[in-house]
Design a binder for these strands. Structure first.
Lengths: 348, 348
DNA sequence: GCAGATATTGAGAACGTTCACAATATCAAA
DNA sequence: TTTGATATTGTGAACGTTCTCAATATCTGC
C-alpha cells in the first residue's frame, strides 16, 4: 500500500529524483547539507529502494546466484543424509550479501542434463544476477565457465581445482590438510595408514590423496597399494572401502576418510567387526559436519571452512569490479585439524 | 548482451507485445495458431521473461521469501551444530517454486531486535514478494502476522501452533507423534519414561508434551513429576536434563527427547555414566536429522516432514489466490516413527 | 574580476514488462 | 442480411529506478 517511492522522498526533501538516487547510492558530488536533508526525508518516510526498479533502470541487480549441483544434493537429502554443506554455504554468504543490500538465490542445476546450458542461460536472462557462486563440481566445469565468461557474468568458484585459472577462486589447501592429518597419525606412531579417496570428478579428491602420499613419503613410510581405496564421498562407498581394508591380511591401524559420510561408514563397519575406535583403529575424516562431532566417539577431523569460503566468494563478487580482470591468485582460507577422540597411538 | 526481449519475439512472430505476453502467461483469448506461432518465435530466440521487468509492469514478482530466525540459526551453525533444518526447508520448497517459475529467497530475521518490523517492512518494500514462508518461532509471532496482514502479503506458517488461525498453516500432528513414540515405549514394556521438553516459545514443545501425558494416562502409567524436564532444544539442555534424570533414585528406563540434539546429549551422557543404550536405556528423539541416523546406535526417532511442509507452503502461496480468504484449516502432513536400534524392552 | 575548470543539481529518456482499454474480427441469433 | 455479443488482437500508459547529458553554482589561479 504505502509504497513509498523515490518520488515521494524527492518531493519531501524538495529535490530532484536524481539527487535522492545519488544519496541512496552514496554517489559523489553531493554536499553534506544536501545529503543530510535527503537522509532525513528517507528516514521520515521509511523509503527503501525497490529492487526490481533498480534492476530496470541501472546496471546492478543486487542479486547473487549460487549454482549447486542438483542431483547429489537432492539425493543425499532424500536419503536422510542431510545437506549441511548447502546450509553452511548459504549461512556464510547471506549475511555478507545483506551487508551491502544484496540477496542470494540458490539454484539447483543438474550437471548431467542436456539442457544445462539452456537452463543457465535462462537464469541469467531472467535474473541478470551481478554474480554467480559456483560450488563444486560445477566450479570445475569448463563449459559453465565458458558460458559465464561469454555472458559476461562475474563468478566465484569454490574449491575450483588447479587446471583452470579463470575467475575468482576461493579454496582451502586440501593438500596441506591431508598432510596435516597424515602427520598427526604418523606422530602418534601409525605407519599402516589407509586412505579413502573422494569422488574422482572433484578436484579436492586428488589434492587430498596427493597430500597423503607426500606426507607418507616425507616420513619414509611406505604405502601398500591396497591401503588406498578409490571411492566416492558416499556412505555406501565408505562401507565398501572399510570392508576391503578390514579384509586385508595386515589391515591399517588408522584410516583417513575423504568425507564425513565415509568416516561414519567406517565407524559403523568397525563396530560390526568388533573393532574399537580408537583403540583398534584411529580415524580421521574430512569436512567436519555435525554428525562427526556428535558421533561416539567424536571424530578427529579436518574442518572445512565452507561458510567462510562462501562469505569470501560473496565479498569478491560484491566488491570486485570484477570482469575483464587478469586472473587473480586464488584466495586460500585456513582450515583446522580438530583433534577429538578418534585418534590415539596404535596398539603395540 | 544478447538480451532478447519480448519486443524481439513480437517482431519475429509479427505480432504485438501484448500477444506475446499473453502466450507467455498462458492468458486466455489466444488462438491455437497464434499461440503456436509465438511459441516458435520464443523457442527460436530463446526468450525468457525478465523477472525485474515483470515485477515492474505487473502485480506478480515470482518471488517467495522465507523468514528464518537469525540467532538460533547462526549460533547453531557457528557451534558446529549444523542447520540441517534450513537446508531441508529450502530443498523442499525450491523445486516447487521452480516448477512455476518462482524463486525462493532466504532472509534471516532477528526476532528479538527492536528493528524487526522495520526490517520486515524493508524486505517487503524492496522485494515485494508474492508470499512469505514463516518458520517457527516466527510462525507464531502475532506481531509479524499482523504486519503481513496489514501489508497484504500472503503468508504460510510452518508449525504455527494453535492459538492463531490466520493465514495458510502447514504442520504435522506433534501430539499424535508424541503419543506414538510413547506407545512404542509402553508396548516394549517401559513404564518409567522420561520426557525432555523443547523450548517453551515453540508451540510444538507443548504439543509434544501433551501427547506424552495423554499416552501415559491412556495406558494407566503414572508420570513422576521429576521425569519431565523442562528444557530447550539444545545439546546443553539435553546434557543438563540427562544428568538430572540419571541422578534420580529410580531413573527412567527410557527417555523421549524433543530434539535430536537433546537425544545426542543424552546418548553422550549415558556413555559417560557407563550406561548402555539401548540395553540400559531406550531413547527416542524428535526430528530425525542426519546425525541421529548415523549415531551409534542409530536412534529411533520421529521423522519430521520438514521438506514436505516447506514444499506444501510454497505450493499454497503459489496456487493460493491467497488473500482475504476465510481462515482455512491447517494442512497436516504425515510423520513417521522410524524404529532403529535405540529402543528395546527394559531390563528386568 | 575574469576565464576556465570543477563540483553540484536537474531533466528526460530508457529499461522490459503488464495493465486497462480501444479496435477489430468472428460468431450466433433474429 | 443485420445486430449484438463475444473472442481475439493491438495501443499507449505505467511501474520505480538509473543513465546520459545539460544547466547551473562554486571554486581556482592569474
Amino acid at each position: 500500500m504505502g509504497a513509498v517511492t523515490i518520488k515521494h522522498v524527492a518531493k519531501e526533501a524538495g529535490v530532484s529524483l536524481q539527487t535522492v538516487s545519488r544519496v541512496v547510492n552514496n554517489g559523489p558530488n553531493v554536499t553534506d547539507a544536501m545529503r543530510e536533508r535527503v537522509r532525513a526525508a528517507i528516514d521520515k518516510l521509511g523509503y527503501v529502494p525497490n529492487m526490481a526498479a533498480r534492476r530496470m533502470g541501472g546496471s546492478k541487480s543486487y542479486l547473487l546466484v549460487a549454482f549447486n549441483d542438483r542431483k547429489p544434493t537432492l539425493e543425499k537429502w532424500r536419503a536422510g543424509r542431510g545437506s549441511d554443506w548447502v546450509a553452511q554455504m548459504l549461512l556464510g554468504a547471506i549475511p555478507r550479501c545483506e551487508r551491502d543490500g544484496y540477496h542470494l538465490l540458490l539454484e539447483l542445476l543438474d550437471g548431467h542434463s542436456a539442457k544445462l546450458h539452456q537452463k543457465i542461460d535462462a537464469i541469467i536472462s531472467s535474473l541478470r544476477p551481478d554474480g554467480v557462486i559456483l560450488t563444486p563440481p560445477h566450479s570445475q566445469d569448463r563449459s559453465i565457465i565458458d558460458q559465464l565468461e561469454h555472458r559476461k557474468v562475474p563468478y566465484a568458484r569454490l574449491s575450483p581445482g588447479e587446471d583452470d585459472e579463470r575467475g575468482f577462486r576461493v579454496r582451502m589447501d586440501e593438500r596441506q590438510a591431508a598432510v596435516m592429518a597424515t602427520r598427526h597419525l604418523l606422530d602418534l606412531g601409525h605407519r599402516r595408514i589407509g586412505f579413502l579417496t573422494g569422488s574422482a570428478e572433484y578436484a579436492v579428491s586428488t589434492e587430498r590423496l596427493e597430500g597423503f602420499r607426500a606426507a607418507m613419503a616425507d616420513a619414509g613410510a611406505a604405502i601398500a597399494p591396497e591401503w588406498v581405496r578409490q571411492g566416492e564421498f558416499s556412505f555406501e562407498s565408505g562401507i565398501a572401502s572399510a570392508d576391503a581394508l578390514f579384509a586385508l591380511r595386515g589391515p591399517p591401524t588408522a584410516i583417513i576418510a575423504s568425507s564425513d559420510e565415509q568416516a561414519l561408514a567406517v565407524l559403523h563397519r568397525a563396530k560390526d567387526m568388533g573393532l574399537d575406535v580408537p583403540a583398534d583403529l584411529s580415524l580421521i575424516s574430512f569436512d567436519d559436519t555435525p554428525p562427526i562431532a556428535f558421533s561416539l566417539p567424536p571424530l578427529t577431523a579436518i574442518r572445512h571452512p565452507t561458510a567462510a569460503m562462501a562469505e569470501r566468494a560473496a565479498a569478491l563478487l560484491i566488491e570486485g569490479h570484477g570482469l575483464d580482470m587478469p586472473p587473480s591468485p586464488p584466495c586460500t582460507l585456513p582450515f583446522e585439524l580438530v583433534v577429538r577422540g578418534s585418534t590415539v597411538p596404535p596398539r603395540r
